[in-house]
Structure formats: C-alpha cells, structure tokens
Write a protein that binds this DNA or RNA. Structure first.
Lengths: 226, 226
DNA sequence: CGCGTGCTTGAACATTATCAAACAGTGTGG
DNA sequence: CCACACTGTTTGATAATGTTCAAGCACGCG
C-alpha cells in the first residue's frame, strides 16, 4: 500500500541529488501540515511516516504510509492538503521545490515519470476505495499484511517476518476500523495458524495462501449488469 | 464528487477540438473495459457514466461518477485499470490518444493542467477514503447529496432540485452500503424534513444546513440512548 | 393487462463499535 | 533497584449500525 509506487526509485534524478539536504525527524513529529506552502519535496530514506486526515470531531484517517523510497510533498497547487507525521524515527532527503520544478521544466522524461508516479498513486487510492467500501475487516487486514510483506520482500528476499513500524491505532485508522478489531483479528489469524506474533510488532507469515484467499485478489472479473 | 475536477473545462485545448469525434453511448453500455489499451481520451458532454471495479465474488464498487465536463480515459501506463459504463445515455467527445500526447509534448502549460487535474483527482480520492473509512452511512449520503447539488448548481444557479441520474444500486456501490440502506436513509431524511422526494430520482433540498451538519461530522458519534 | 425492474419497508441477524478492565513493556524519579 | 506512571495491546461483555432475507409496491412497457 505504498502511497508512492515502487517506481519512486526510478524517479530519482541525478541532478536532483546535488540539491538535496538530509532531514531527520522523530516519532510523532509533524513534517508537513495541512495548509502549509509546498516549498519542499521529500524522499524517505529510513523510517516510516503517515499521511493523516482528521474530521472536526477527532475521527482520524490515515491515507497512506510512507516507507523508504517513497516521495512526498508533491503538490502542484503549491499548498499541502494533508498532514504528514512520523511513525518511526525517519531520515529524509529534502529538495527545494524550485529546483524540482526546474528539472521538470527542462526534462520531459522527468515529467513523464512524475505523471506515472501520480497516476499509480491514484490507482492505488482506487484500490483502497474498493477495500474500504466493499471488503470486510478481515479481508482488509489480510490485504494490509500482504502488501507490507510484498513491500519488504522487494528489499531482502525470503523474509517471512514483517516488522510493523506503526502502532495498532495507525493500522486501524488506515483500514477504517478500531484498534480492538485489529487486535482481535490478529489474534484470530494466530489461532488459525495463519500468522505468528513473536512480539506485538512482528508478524511471521505462516500461511500466506490463507491471507491471499481472504483478500480475494482483485481479478478483472466482470459481471453483466442487469 | 466529480472524478475530474471542475478544472476540466479549462483543460480543453483549442487544438484538441479539431481532433475530436462525437460518440454516443446508451444506458449500461460499457465504454472502456479494464485491461483495454488506452487509445482514446474522452470528455463527457451530456449524460453520466460510472467508473466501476469488481471483486471476484461479484461485490461491486463505483469509484466515481463522470458528469458533463469530466475527462476520462487518461492512463499514462497505456492500459486502462477500470471499467467505465453508462449510467444515463451519454454523448462524449473522443480524442485519439496520439494527438493528445502530441499536444502534451509541445505545450508545457497543458502538462501542468493535466498534472493539476490528476492531483485534484488524487485529493478527491483521499477525501473519499476518509468518507468510506470513518463516516457513517448517513454522513456519506449527506455528503453525496451536497456534492451533487454543488456540482449541479455551478451550471444553473438556484436549483434546489437534484436529479439523480444513477439508480440506488449505483449510489450504494459508490458509498459502500446497500440499496436498502440508501433507501432507508432517504426516507429518514424526508421524514425529518431535510429533503423532499417528488419522484424516486428527484431530490429537493429543504434544509441544506442539516445535511452540512451531518457531512462535516459535527454530529455526536456516540449517542447516549434515551 | 401482466411482467420485469427498481424502490421501499419490515424483521431477524451479523459484523464491528463501544465501554471496561487487565496486562505488558518502558522509562522516570526516588 | 524498585515503585510508579504511562502508553500500547489484548480480551471480554454489551450494544449499535448496517446487512440479509423477504415481501410488497409503483411504474413503464410489451
């Protein structure tokens, strides 16, 4: 469920590297606040962040998690529409917006990559709409674990253990449920032998197929509408 | 809840007009199928369409509705990831993808508009994630009615009557609930004097403020039972 | 007409939220 | 080093929101 697709690595531009400066941020710190001017673009190096939206009464939603390799802060309008907070102590590279734009102006290929990146994010958002609108809590959590695993695995192959950088509340707000439901479902998965929970934030996938069955892989199956 | 923002009108490009050809499509017809090559870009002139995704077991989700002025079919990857069907008999303009791309290559301003358009869609998708993940059925329906009204009203001012081009099933799949719930909530709104329902697909907004109160989530989440 | 389709309504049921309490781990100050 | 607060997790009992199943109604069309 990366907000920025895996294409992010390829989006790195050589001439960008010289512009970047390292930024370090600690747990629960706010990196970008809704309404702020979008003067910088960031790329996650280590750690994890969350994209957050709030309702007036305090209900919270996590739009996406940002993991190493992901870009954030891109906002053509020039104003951020979301708040971004640190989940696990993070280091990022920060590029000044102007330099970023300058590259876009001169490099057509960069524009195309950016367009592809954002389109990928849009497509991912649509997947999540289907997830939140039409799948059960168990299906959503299964999909989440599989996505995290897939993401991890792209780095080091054959690692059946997922490390959860985020707390239960973050997961709950990401999947549109309560912490209690997240906890109960994890326990249920454990009882069924689908996962192991050596520690609260370490998940070992024992039977991936069971999770895949739950998350009802999205195949392009069509139903003839009445 | 327009998939393509209101900016769509401004996205029209003079040199595009010569390339376009008119396409007419009837109710329930499929205009674009998931997996198809994205050879054309469309713009809605009249009528309404829906962007649909299905789960293998038949559960359906409507990602967005497309109303006059909206663009669709844009897909940088070259392959469509969604199915698009006709809600109410529609006429669209169809532009060949190549001509569209050519304009993008030569006109930097067009690229910027496209980027802004897609970013707007992404932002709208995030709003909908919050809606589906954290708001009640009543709040979602209220937000839907207000969005439709806002959209209509931009054309002709002072029209308190919304025409629902889509059926209850479409609304339900868009808001992540069942037809029964949509129906019950509309009845409830009517009983409370918030709306009127002269016909099944005509909604008159009597007390917009009541809907706004609902949709902004300012209503108590947990009600102490009498 | 009578049938099909879509809308509404009702009653029973299920999933998930809410409330409450206990527990584990972590850091703090005495 | 221990007691203590503090935060995050788990578990249980209860309740609400929304679904499912089932039936009836309204409308348009052959």
């Amino acid at each position: 469920m990366p907000a920025a697709a895996r294409a992010s690595e390829r989006t790195t531009h050589r001439s960008l590297d010289r512009l970047g400066s390292i930024v370090v941020a600690k747990r629960n710190q706010t990196v970008i606040e809704e309404g702020q001017a979008a003067d910088y673009v960031f790329k996650v190096i280590t750690g994890a962040l969350r994209v957050v939206r709030l309702l007036p009464d305090g209900r919270r939603h996590v739009a996406s998690f940002l993991l190493p390799g992901d870009f954030f802060g891109l906002s053509p309008s020039g104003v951020h529409t979301q708040t971004i907070e640190v989940v696990a102590d993070a280091t990022c590279v920060r590029y000044p917006r102007r330099g970023f734009d300058a590259i876009l102006r001169t490099d057509p290929a960069a524009i195309h990559r950016l367009l592809t990146l954002i389109s990928g994010q849009l497509s991912a958002a649509h997947d999540r709409l289907l997830l939140l609108g039409r799948q059960t809590a168990a299906e959503r959590l299964a999909a989440f674990l599989l996505a995290l695993d897939h993401r991890d695995r792209s780095g080091a192959p054959k690692r059946p253990t997922i490390e959860l950088a985020m707390c239960r509340a973050d997961i709950a707000d990401y999947l549109g449920m309560t912490v209690e439901t997240v906890s109960r479902l994890l326990t249920e998965f454990r009882r069924k032998g689908i996962i192991e929970l050596p520690e609260a934030n370490h998940v070992v996938l024992l039977r991936r197929s069971a999770l895949e069955g739950l998350s009802s892989g999205r195949l392009p199956i069509r139903r003839t509408r009445p």
